[in-house]
Amino acid sequence: MNCSDVRDQLESYIADDVTDVESMRIAEHLGGCESCAAAYERTRSVVADLKGISDAFVPRDRFAPRPAYTSCPAGGWLWRTIAVAASAVAIAAVGALSVPAIARELPFGVAKEFDALEDRAEDLQQQVDELTVRLETIDGEQVAMVDTTPGDLAPEEAAAVQQLAMDFIRGQYAGDVAALEAMGTDRLKADLAARPGDYVRDGAEGLTFAQMTEPARAEDGTYLIFVRLMDSGDWSESQYQEDFEIKLIDGRYLVDFMGMDA
C-alpha cells in the first residue's frame, strides 16, 4: 500500500469500516511512514471530536408521540415538556416553562384557543414568574400542585376537576373499563370502546401521583389538567403524563379526552 492508498482509506480505517486485511496493511504502513502517521493523528482527532457532538446536545423539550387514537392536526405532534419532579428543582423547571409552551400542550379540539391564549401570553407571563409548587391533600393523597392559573377557578370547581382526573387514572390502573365509561363523555366512550388498550393500565403497579397542574378553563368551557404519574412499568425512565380535557355536562364533570405524554 502506498501513501495515496492509505490516505484514501484513513477515514474508513478510523471508523473501523475496512476489512481485516486492509486494516492490517494500513496499520503496517502507518508504523513506517511518519507523514501518514501525522495525517492519521489529525484525522483521528477531528473524528473523535465529531463523534462527541451528538451527546452534547441535551434535549430540553422532548418529542413524544400522541397515542394513535388522538386526533391531531396534521404534523401536530408537539415537543413535550420534560418531566418536572415535585421538588425545589421542579420549581425552577416549572418557572422556566413559558406560557405559550403550556398553551401548546393543549390537545386538538381546543386548538382554536391557541391564538387567544397566545394573545394573553404577556399577561400570563407575569403569573408564570410567580409560579409555585405546593403540596395538597386530595382524596387522602398528597400531590404536588403546580399553580398554573392561580385564582382562575372557584376552589370547588378546581377540586371536582382534579378529583375526576385522579379517579379516572385509578380506574385505568384498576382496569375498570365500566368505571372509565361512566366518567367519560360520548366521545371518550366511543374511543374507549374502540381502543380499550390505550386506556387500561392494569399491568402496572405502584401508581404514584407525582404532580398535577391546577386546572385551567379554556374559553369554550373545557377544563384542562395535566397529571404526572409514576408506576412500576419498565418502559419509562421515571414518569409520564396524562393530559385531560374535561367538560361540565348537565352538572357532571366528564372526561372528554385523555392523551398520554412522555
Binding site: I53, S54, D55, F57, V58, P59, R62, F63, A64, P65, R66, P67, A68, G197, G233, W235, S236, E237, Y240, M260, A262
Partner: peptide, 23 residues
C-alpha cells in the same frame, strides 16, 4: 404492534443524534 411507549423509548435512543444531524 401499537406500543407508543416503546416508540417513545426509541426516540430517546435517537433524538440527540437526529437533532445534531438536522442541525
Amino acid at each position: 404492534a401499537g406500543d407508543a411507549r416503546a416508540f417513545t423509548t426509541l426516540v430517546r435512543h435517537h433524538e440527540r443524534s437526529l437533532y445534531a444531524t438536522a442541525y
